[in-house]
């Protein structure tokens, strides 16, 4: 079976799962539905010959599920009451998304067809990667050698995000006496 058939199946499954996750009332069910969508992404990476990405996506799924469940479980007293504004917003949202989809179809016709990438730069990585870096895994040779500054930037962003989490979740102010506010 060609790879497109598998991809169309998994993509349809993921779209269905996303709609289910967005429309369910129970928040735990929708978090689990998002986890299923992420596992669909992981499976698609396997079909597209990217085993490293499949493993990383799987780990991301597990961590995201733990974070979301830990943060939001037990806070289910937030049943939003239906209002006419809500229904208008839904209709406007669906219309906007449909218009965007129809308008963007010509753009996708301009792209190179599926299965025939351009590969101007990466052909050099494939040809010379093993001799220049000595790594058998060419993805590792790209992230750790050719584009190592990109990885450094990634770690910096991750560090900044973790610092932000601690700054937001800190419950007491650090210099109470020095600041002017008494809250």
């Amino acid at each position: 079976m060609p790879v497109e058939t598998w991809l169309i199946f998994t993509l349809g499954f993921m779209i269905f799962g996303s709609i289910v996750a967005l429309e369910l009332k129970d928040i735990l069910s929708s978090i689990i539905a998002i986890g299923v969508v992420g596992l669909g992404v992981s499976m698609s990476f396997l079909f597209l010959q990217a085993p490293d990405l499949a493993i990383v996506q799987f780990l991301f799924e597990i961590f995201a599920l733990i974070i979301l469940v830990r943060a939001f479980i037990g806070k289910e007293n937030h049943q939003l009451e239906a209002s006419p504004t809500n229904r208008i917003l839904t209709v406007i949202g669906i219309l906007a998304v449909l218009v965007l989809f129809i308008v963007s179809i010509p753009v996708f016709k301009l792209l190179p067809p599926f299965g025939e990438p351009l590969m101007n730069v990466s052909q050099h990585y494939l040809d010379a990667g093993a001799t220049e870096t000595g790594a058998a895994n060419l993805v590792a040779s790209v992230i750790l050698d050719y584009r190592a500054y990109d990885t450094l930037g990634e770690v910096t962003v991750l560090f900044a995000a973790i610092l932000g989490v601690f700054a937001i979740l800190r419950s007491t102010a650090k210099h109470k006496a020095a600041g002017g506010s008494h809250e």
Binding site: L48, Q49, A50, D52, L53, V56, Q57, F60, F63, A64, P117, M119, V121, S122, Y125, L126, G129, L138, V139, S141, V142, I143, R147, D150, T151, E154, V157, L158, A160, A161, I162
Partner: peptide
């Protein structure tokens, strides 16, 4: 072999998404 460059950059992107 498939293109290793988008795979490496998406690997970065997934980790940033977690943060």
């Amino acid at each position: 072999m498939v293109d290793p460059l988008p795979q490496a950059l998406v690997l970065t992107s997934i980790v940033i998404e977690l943060g």
